[in-house]
Lab assay of single mutants.
Amino acid sequence: KVILLEDVKGLGKKGDVVEVKDGYARNFLIPQGLAVEATKGNLKEL
């Protein structure tokens, strides 16, 4: 699961917690600054 930092077409809006494949999160969303891993600490910051 990841928390979206920006609106991502076809996935969700900023602040949404979405389930995506590990590779998509690690190789695209997180490096592009579009999402962060949905850890307990990150979820509390919402």
Rank of each mutant, 00 (worst) to 15 (best):
L4V: 01
L46C: 13
A35G: 06
L34E: 01
G33I: 03
E19T: 11
Y24I: 07
E37M: 13
G15S: 04
V17S: 05
E45M: 04
K14S: 07
G15W: 13
G41C: 13
T39N: 11
A35I: 02
G15F: 11
E45P: 04
K9S: 11
A35Y: 02
I30P: 01
D7L: 06
T39F: 05
K44L: 15
T39H: 07
V2Y: 15
A38R: 03
V2I: 11
K1V: 10
G41Q: 13
I30L: 08
V20A: 03
D22V: 14
N42Y: 04
E37G: 06
G33Q: 09
K14I: 07
V36M: 10
V17T: 08
D7R: 09
L29R: 00
V17E: 07
K40C: 13
G41R: 11
G33K: 09
I30C: 04
V2N: 01
K1A: 10
K13R: 13
Q32H: 10
V2S: 01
G12F: 01
K21N: 13
D16Q: 12
K1H: 10
A38D: 08
G33M: 09
G41I: 09
D22R: 14
A25G: 07
N27D: 06
G41N: 13
E19W: 15
A25C: 05
E6L: 14
L5T: 08
K9G: 10
T39I: 07
D16W: 13
L4W: 00
G41V: 12
N27R: 14
D7F: 11
A35W: 01
A25R: 03
V8I: 11
K40W: 15
G15C: 08
N42S: 07
G15I: 00
V17Q: 07
V2F: 15
T39A: 06
L4T: 00
K44Q: 14
L46A: 14
E19D: 11
E45G: 11
D16C: 10
L29E: 01
L5C: 07
L11Q: 02
K21Q: 13
E37A: 10
N27I: 09
V20M: 03
P31E: 13
V2T: 02
A25V: 06
L43G: 07
L4S: 00
A38C: 11
F28K: 04
K9M: 12
A38N: 06
L46Q: 15
L43P: 05
L43Y: 06
L4E: 00
G12H: 00
G41D: 15
A35V: 04
A25T: 04
D7T: 11
Q32C: 14
V18K: 05
R26W: 13
K14Q: 08
K21A: 14
L29G: 01
R26P: 03
A25W: 08
L5I: 10
G41M: 10
